[in-house]
């Protein structure tokens, strides 16, 4: 029962990643794509955690933590770039 529900949950996350990927390719401006990348990255972090449970190896969670960390910096830098171009320093 638990295994079936875990597989269902992984499929749901993969489906939502496909939806966001469409917005990522299509989206008209850069902030749209950063928003889509936001959803994709955090969704993939959850998928990594679920697979760490399914495969039964408890130390694989480190990578999802690292992914969340790096995405924060990337978003901050893109925001800084967009603001700086508008201000024109």
């Amino acid at each position: 029962m638990i295994d079936l529900l875990l597989n269902v949950a992984i499929s749901m996350f993969v489906l939502s990643i496909v939806f966001s990927l469409y917005r990522m390719i299509r989206g008209p401006t850069v902030p749209d794509r950063m928003l889509a990348l936001d959803v994709i990255s955090y969704g993939l972090a959850v998928v990594m955690g679920l697979i760490a449970i399914v495969s039964g190896s408890p130390y694989l969670i480190v990578i999802s933590f690292s992914l969340a960390l790096w995405f924060f910096i990337g978003a901050l830098y893109v925001a800084r770039y967009l603001e700086g171009e508008e201000i024109g320093e």
């Binding site: 850069v30 794509r33 990348l37 993939l44 990578i63 992914l67 990337g74 893109v78 770039y81």
Partner: peptide
């Protein structure tokens, strides 16, 4: 080019997974 950088970051996420 900014868009290309963002998309390459997304591709890096995929390769990491």
């Amino acid at each position: 080019l900014l868009l290309a950088v963002v998309l390459s970051g997304a591709e890096g996420v995929m390769v990491a997974v």
